[in-house]
Simulated scan of single mutants.
Amino acid sequence: MLKKKSVRIGLIVLLGVILVAGSGLMYYRLSRIQGTIATSIINEELEETDAPKVVVYTQDRSFKNEVMKKVTADISTRPIYLEILPIEEISKDLDQWDKIVIFTTVQSSEPPENVLPIITKYRDDQRMGLFLTADSGEWAHQPDDVEALTAASRSLDNVDEFATQIISFITD
């Protein structure tokens, strides 16, 4: 009788630990879900001109939104056509763009699955700028031949750093 009771208690404790750990992991993953940003265009009147054409693929998250506010405020004063599109709509053919910015998040040590083939395809293309946020501040599995700015998105100091780097990439 004692063995059965201790086994039951052990199983109940183990089940409780599994439920708590699973709930914690689920909360962590759900709190990190990136939203889908609405498409927007800056300097739309320049679309049919010879002005540089830039696309930014990104996500709807407070840090990224703050960075993009600074980027769009700066670019709106320049003769540059800028489209901001959801990362989910990233295209395999980016030939129509003079600059391509990918501004996304590293989750589970990798950027979004649909982005990896694009990074691989355009890794040597000087038109591609890769800007990644990660809780750890780094892309754990970053290939040696891929250049990316990667930092944590927790600090407001990083908003200015990301915005400055993205603007510099676009305008160079």
Rank of each mutant, 00 (worst) to 15 (best):
E113S: 11
E110D: 10
V67F: 03
P86H: 06
S108T: 09
D160A: 09
F131D: 00
S109H: 13
D160T: 08
S31Y: 06
E48T: 13
V56Q: 02
D157N: 15
Q96K: 15
A134G: 09
T164V: 07
T120L: 09
R8T: 14
K3R: 11
L132P: 00
M68V: 09
S153K: 04
D74G: 10
I90A: 05
N43P: 04
I75P: 01
Y57P: 02
T150G: 09
T72F: 04
I170S: 01
E83S: 08
E45S: 15
I37A: 05
S168K: 08
A148W: 04
F63H: 03
R78T: 09
Q107N: 13
I12P: 09
I75W: 04
L19S: 09
L15D: 05
H141A: 13
K64Q: 12
G22Q: 02
D50E: 15
K121T: 13
V159K: 00
D145V: 02
S108G: 10
G24L: 10
V56P: 00
V17A: 15
Y81W: 07
V101W: 00
V146S: 04
F131C: 03
I100E: 00
D74K: 13
V20H: 06
I41D: 01
A73Q: 11
T120C: 07
L94H: 07
S136T: 12
